[in-house]
Design a protein around this nucleic acid. Structure first.
Lengths: 323, 323
DNA sequence: CTGTTAGCGCATTCAC
DNA sequence: GTGAATGCGCTAACAG
């Protein structure tokens, strides 16, 4: 591997001069700088980031801690974060916190031991990551007091709830996957608020909740709003087994706008979050923190967007031809 | 941050002794070693990996290059790789090659510039990553001459093809997403081999291919085998629009066994690859390469597993009640 | 404009 | 057993 020393020796100047020339410090004559650059080019010189990191005390690497890398949203988050970090010459080191809070702390410590300049953390459901020795940006939900930036999950719930209310539904089931998740609680809360006074609402959770759906639909529920697209697919399957169809017998919605939402039949109405923007802000704030600016006083909230497709239709009071 | 120097000063010994004590070199007296360790503990001493990396010339970081972080398989690969790497005290730096071969080369270079000890690459469809300055492990498909370790995609195709043939299907459509993908070509090839002489086979690709399916089914095709679960979901949707149902009118299979396969109705028959094992081998081979062992002469192939669920049934010749 | 010196934190000689 | 010296590659302060 070529080094500054190498180039310096080749040209017959000091290492410092080469360093200055290559980093454009301006203290070097045009001609010399040109010669140095030419030689560096020939040698395919690449600065050694490790040495630079040691000198600067910064590695240029950010740690990303996710509760479960298997999370269907992880790919998008990872990609957006990776892109945003890239634009600022930062790298992203991943760590999995394997579905439990203790492991989450371990993962954070391991990353810090590796010398990351900051931590991006999507917290474990219902856990509170300890404040760390390095700048930390939490991506969760606005109702989390430690949240730094996130989608407006309550607002998203509201959007989809209003969509359903506007379509005339008056008997609605809200289905969450796991009641311990702040994100899901907020989505449900938003839905409730939109339906408040406009529809009868029933909230249920998890597999037990799904099992009750066919009966609830038979008893008059005309819409099921879920907190995730995958959950919606499960619901559709369960309903289909019971001979109920979407949106004929019941309207159905998801959350997150995963690729599968578009592949479903009918295409699933859902709520999209602007992952790119969240990632962009997360990285921007992180850079500020690293640069020594104080942490923002309150978290940032990024709007969500309603994606109305064909799994939701206007409520048809007379849509019961089987009598 | 505490350092060796700090501990040395506190106790009144030299840095070298502290280093020796902490890394268990055995050249230090029991008592001294104990005192040093105690003080290190108190101070919460963590070795500075950057300095160590500079000294050793190794960072303990592996670069992971994926063609598209949004790939539905990425979460599982990332998690398995991350776990396997973790077990050997290695970190994983991710990079996205953004769907084009040039970007893939850039991503690799960026990672190398960051000083990674090796590169794990899942190549861009139809692209050949240049040999690199660091050990490189390619995860693709056995038919790729550069492949280091991968699932047996041909074998997987064979398994699902035989499953279908055994169920009596004699008129089968094979659907791939993108003909340029070696992986998908191999899956299709495996299916063909299994159906060879047992069924009439038609191969088609992409959205255009999907569009032809309803007609093909109406004309007698009784099974559609796809190269991915998401593709299968799309197929099911298209068939449903045409009034065709799975598995009543036609059997359907996916590939990869994503979470959505189980959420579908009916649950999707598919092929699972042992991602954990692939990742484990990839990391193991990487470590060997880093340790200076020669590259294995040929790639390793990890068996796949048939996951038969309810989207496939025996062919019912008389299953056409609409006449 | 350019060179010298020093040091980031650690591990590895080689003396003592 | 322990310490002093050296250098990994780079940058920054200070000289000249």
């Amino acid at each position: 591997m070529s080094s500054l020393k190498q180039i310096a020796a080749d040209i017959g100047v000091s290492v410092a001069t080469v360093s200055n020339a290559l980093t454009d410090k301006g203290r070097v004559s045009k001609e010399m700088a040109a010669r140095i650059r030419a030689r560096a080019e020939e040698l395919g010189y690449r600065p050694n980031v490790t040495a630079r990191a040691l000198k600067r005390g910064q590695t240029g690497i950010l740690g990303l801690v996710m509760p479960d890398l298997t999370n269907p949203l992880f790919p998008r988050i990872a990609q957006s974060l990776s892109d945003a970090a890239d634009a600022r010459q930062l790298g992203i080191l991943i760590a999995d916190s394997r579905r439990n809070a203790g492991e989450q702390e371990n993962a954070m410590r391991r990353l810090i031991d590796r010398g990351v300049d900051g931590l991006l953390v999507v917290p474990q459901k219902g856990s509170a990551p300890e404040p760390q020795a390095v700048p930390t940006v939490v991506i969760n939900t606005p109702s989390d007091p430690r949240n730094t930036v996130s989608a407006d999950h309550v607002g998203g719930g509201y959007l989809i709830g209003r969509h359903i209310a506007d379509m005339g539904h008056r008997n609605v089931v809200l289905l969450g996957g796991d009641a311990v998740s702040d994100v899901q609680q907020d989505r449900i809360a938003g839905m409730r608020r939109a339906l408040q006074g406009r529809a009868r609402v029933c909230v249920c959770w998890g597999a037990d909740g799904i099992a009750t759906l066919p009966l609830q639909v038979t008893n008059g529920a005309s819409a099921v709003l879920t907190t995730s697209d995958l959950l919606a697919l499960r619901v559709q399957s369960t309903l289909a087994s019971a001979g109920l169809s979407v949106p004929g017998d019941v309207s159905l919605t998801g959350f997150d706008d995963l690729p599968l939402a578009l592949a479903m039949h009918p295409p699933l109405s859902t709520v999209a979050q602007d992952v790119d923007r969240i990632a962009g802000r997360a990285i921007a704030i992180m850079c500020d923190l690293i640069a020594g600016q104080p942490a923002p006083v309150s978290g940032e909230t990024i709007p969500t967007r309603l994606v109305a497709r064909q799994s939701t239709t206007s409520f048809q009071p007379a849509a019961n031809p089987e009598t």
